[in-house]
Amino acid sequence: MRTFRSLLFILLALVATVACKQKPEEGPKEKMAQEDLPIKVEGEEVRYATDSTEMRGYIAYDKNLDGKRPGVIVVHEWWGHNDYVRQRADMLAELGYTAIAVDMYGDGKQADHPDDAGKFAMSVMSNLPAAKARFNAAMELLKQHKTVNAEHLAAIGYCFGGSVVLTMANTGADLDAVAAFHSGVQLPVPPNEDLKAKVLVCNGADDSFIDPASVTAFKAAMDSINASYEYISYPGVKHSFTSKEADANGKKFGLPLEYDKVADEKSWQELKDLLAETFLK
Rank of each mutant, 00 (worst) to 15 (best):
Asp66His: 06
Lys119Asn: 10
Pro190Lys: 10
Pro256Glu: 11
Met168Ile: 11
Lys21Val: 09
Thr216Ala: 11
Arg56Lys: 13
Ala217Phe: 06
Ile59Pro: 15
Leu128Gly: 01
Leu142Phe: 09
His182Lys: 04
Glu258Leu: 01
Leu37Ala: 15
Glu245Ser: 08
Ile210Asn: 06
Asp260Pro: 01
Lys252Met: 08
His81Leu: 12
Ser6Tyr: 10
Pro190Cys: 09
Pro24Trp: 10
Pro129His: 00
Gly236Lys: 12
Glu30Asn: 04
Asp62Pro: 09
Met122Tyr: 11
Asn226Ile: 00
Asp51Tyr: 11
Leu280Phe: 12
Pro191Met: 11
Ile225His: 07
Glu35Tyr: 10
Asn226Ala: 12
Ala33Asn: 13
Met55Val: 03
Gly172Leu: 04
Arg56Gln: 12
Asn249His: 11
Val124Phe: 01
Lys238Ser: 10
Tyr48Met: 08
Asp264Glu: 13
Gly71Asp: 04
Asp90Leu: 02
Lys146Trp: 00
Asn82Arg: 07
Leu65Cys: 02
Ala220Gln: 14
Gly236Pro: 08
Asn203Gln: 09
Gly57Trp: 00
Thr17Ala: 15
Asn149Phe: 08
Ala131Pro: 03
Gln269Ser: 10
Arg2Thr: 07
Gly162Tyr: 00
Asn203Cys: 10
Leu12Arg: 09
Met104Gly: 07
Ala16Met: 12
Leu141Tyr: 08
Leu280Lys: 13
